[in-house]
């Protein structure tokens, strides 16, 4: 069984969206679930949170940002190519209210995993305010989709090239300060951004969820590499999470654990880029 890419879209230079033919995953997947995939027989197993799905068509959408060799190799795949493995849905459904007002915060590439949560909340009749942002305008992804999934959307950029000039967390702080009633916050993005979000909401006693992205291997609770400390307890993010109470997570430990293979990742990425470069140069000469 191969998992064919039926559609590929460039969201930014380094962020690509893939619609993948995976009927079994599509049948049961819900907001917050992730999949584990591999793009080649020598490839590693990596977890990716589902960004969208279509049960009828039997497809699952994932968004990949190039940060290393594996993500680069995936982003070099084209429509019609296939993932060799694509397993899921994995993890717990995102914790979602049935009513009230929820603010969905998506930082950088974290907008993708927040999208299905916003959609599901909205379809339940929850009022959804979304705050999305990136370093600069070119890196903002899925703005239209988030707009459609939210009652109101705030756009931010670190450099002021679009929307609010500042971090998503600053926009969140402003929103809280403005006196708007908020029941819950869901924040997904880089670990530092999720940690900052937790720091913003904690003094206000505002329930907040974050989605952790530790290193994983099997994604079914078999290896324990994804262990995180939440509320002083050992949790396996792949089966107990990936969503956790933002105010209970040990971010320092999680940040450190994600650096386990930093050196190896850089080496593999450099080697890949070199080859990729050569392929392109080779192509230019012969063409």
């Amino acid at each position: 069984m191969m998992y064919r890419i039926v559609e590929k879209r460039d969201l930014t230079d380094v962020t690509k969206l893939f619609v993948v033919d995976a009927p079994m995953v599509a049948r049961r997947v819900q907001a917050g679930h992730f999949v584990i995939l591999r793009c080649s027989e020598e490839g590693e197993r990596i977890p990716i949170t589902v960004a969208d799905f279509d049960r009828e068509a039997g497809t699952v959408t994932v968004v990949i940002q190039e940060v290393g060799k594996t993500s680069a190799a995936i982003n070099d795949l084209a429509e019609g190519d296939s993932f060799v493995d694509f397993v899921g849905p994995l993890g717990q459904v995102a914790p979602m209210r049935e009513d009230g007002h929820v603010v969905c915060v998506g930082g950088g590439f974290g907008v993708a995993p927040v999208l299905p949560v916003a959609k599901e909340l909205r379809s339940r009749g929850v009022e959804v305010t979304s705050i999305i942002g990136a370093r600069t305008q070119d890196l903002v992804i899925l703005q239209d989709e988030m707009e459609a999934a939210s009652d109101q959307l705030y756009l931010c950029s670190d450099d002021g090239s679009c929307g609010f000039h500042g971090f998503v967390t600053q926009q969140l702080e402003e929103l809280i300060q403005s006196g708007t009633h908020i029941d819950e916050v869901v924040a997904v993005g880089p670990m530092v951004m999720m940690k900052a979000t937790a720091e913003v909401t904690e003094p206000h006693g505002l329930k907040t969820w974050v989605s952790l992205d530790p290193i994983m291997v099997d994604g079914t609770g078999m290896c324990g590499v994804c262990r995180v400390t939440v509320g002083g307890e050992l949790k396996f993010a792949c089966v107990d999470g990936p969503f956790f109470d933002a105010h209970e997570v040990d971010y320092e430990e999680a940040l450190k654990r994600n650096k386990m293979y930093q050196r190896e990742e850089r080496l593999a990425y450099d080697m890949y880029k070199e080859n990729r470069h050569e392929c392109r140069r080779g192509g230019a000469v012969s063409g």
Binding site: R45, K69, T70, E264, A268
Partner: peptide, 12 residues
């Protein structure tokens, strides 16, 4: 995952 072959395979 045959990590002993890294970087020939991707799993370290």
């Amino acid at each position: 995952m045959k990590a002993f072959k890294f970087p020939e395979v991707d799993t370290p």
